[in-house]
Nucleic acid binder design. Structure first.
Lengths: 140, 140
DNA sequence: TTCTTAGTGGGTAAAAGTGTGTAATTTTGG
DNA sequence: CCAAAATTACACACTTTTACCCACTAAGAA
C-alpha cells in the first residue's frame, strides 16, 4: 500500500531521493511518466504498469493512437541507485516544472511527484464542491 | 518495452543517432518504413515486423493493396553503426519531412521518428475530445 | 553511547552521443 | 569496360552525460 507525503530536494545532478517506504512496495525498478490529468509525474510499479499496458493494448489502434503516444513516449523505467535516488529525465522535469523542492505522494496503487509550489496551488484550487459531494457519497 | 522520448540532430551525412535504450530492445538490425497513419517513420524489431507482415498477408489483396504498397515498398532493414547511428534512406527522409531536428518515440511495441516541428504540430492537433474519453475509459 | 538506516554531496569511470577523416563500394559518364 | 565521382561504410578522436562508488551527516533504535 503506497501512502504518505515525502518532501525532498532535487540535487544539482537532477537526482531525487525516493522514499524508502515506497521503494519497498515498488520494487527495484518502476515506471515514471507524465500524469494525463495534472502537471505532475506518476509512478507505477512494474506490475501496475503491465496492467495499464494490457488495457491500452486492448483498445483499437485508431482510437488509442494518441493515448499510446502520450503514455509510452513519456514513460521511463527507472531504478534507484544504492542510496535510493532516481534520475528524472529532462522531458519529465520540464513537464512537471520540477526545479528544486519536490514532494512525493503515495496514493494507494501509484505515486505522484510534484513540484512543491504546484502542489500547494493544486491543493488550494481543487474543486471543494466535488470533494464535499464525494465525501458525502463515501459516508466519511 | 519500447518507451521514452529522445531528441537528436540528423548530421550532415544524413545519419540519425538511435537511442541506446531502444536499440537494446530492437536488436542489431530492424525495419524502418513510412507510417500509414501519419507523416512520420515507424520502426519495428524484426520479430514485430514478421507479425505485421503475417497480418497484412492475411488480408485479401483487393482490400490491402494500397497498404501493402506503402508499407513494403518503403521498408528498409537498417543496422546502427558502431556509434549507434542509422542512415535514413532518402525516400523516407522526404516522406517524413526530416531535415535536422528529429525525435524518436518509443511506443510499446514499435517506434516513431518525427521531424520536430511536425511532431509539435501533431501533438497540438490531436483530437483532445477523443483523448479525454479514452483516458476516462482507462481510469487514468 | 554505538549501531543501523535514511538521506545528501561529490568524484570517477564507463557509456552515449557528436564530429570528422578515410577506405570501400556503388553509380555514372565517357 | 574502365575511370571519375558520388555515396556509403568504417574507424577514430572528442565531449557530454550517466552510472556507479564512497564518504559524510542526521536521526532513531538498541
Amino acid at each position: 500500500m503506497l501512502c504518505g507525503t515525502y518532501h525532498y530536494n532535487i540535487d544539482p545532478k537532477g537526482r531525487l531521493n525516493f522514499p524508502a517506504k515506497l521503494r519497498e512496495d515498488l520494487g527495484s525498478s518502476f515506471m515514471v511518466t507524465c500524469s494525463v490529468a495534472d502537471r505532475c509525474l506518476v509512478v507505477y510499479s512494474m506490475a501496475e504498469w503491465e496492467k495499464l499496458v494490457a488495457k491500452v493494448e486492448s483498445l483499437p489502434m485508431g482510437k488509442s493512437r494518441a493515448v499510446r503516444r502520450r503514455l509510452f513516449a513519456n514513460a521511463q523505467e527507472v531504478s534507484p541507485d544504492k542510496q535510493g535516488r532516481i534520475l528524472i529525465p529532462q522531458e519529465l522535469m520540464t513537464y512537471a516544472q520540477l526545479s528544486k523542492e519536490a514532494t512525493v505522494l503515495g496514493i494507494s496503487n501509484y505515486c505522484e511527484i510534484w513540484d512543491d509550489s504546484l502542489l500547494e496551488q493544486q491543493m488550494n484550487e481543487e474543486d471543494q464542491q466535488m470533494l464535499a459531494e464525494t465525501v458525502e457519497e463515501l459516508g466519511l
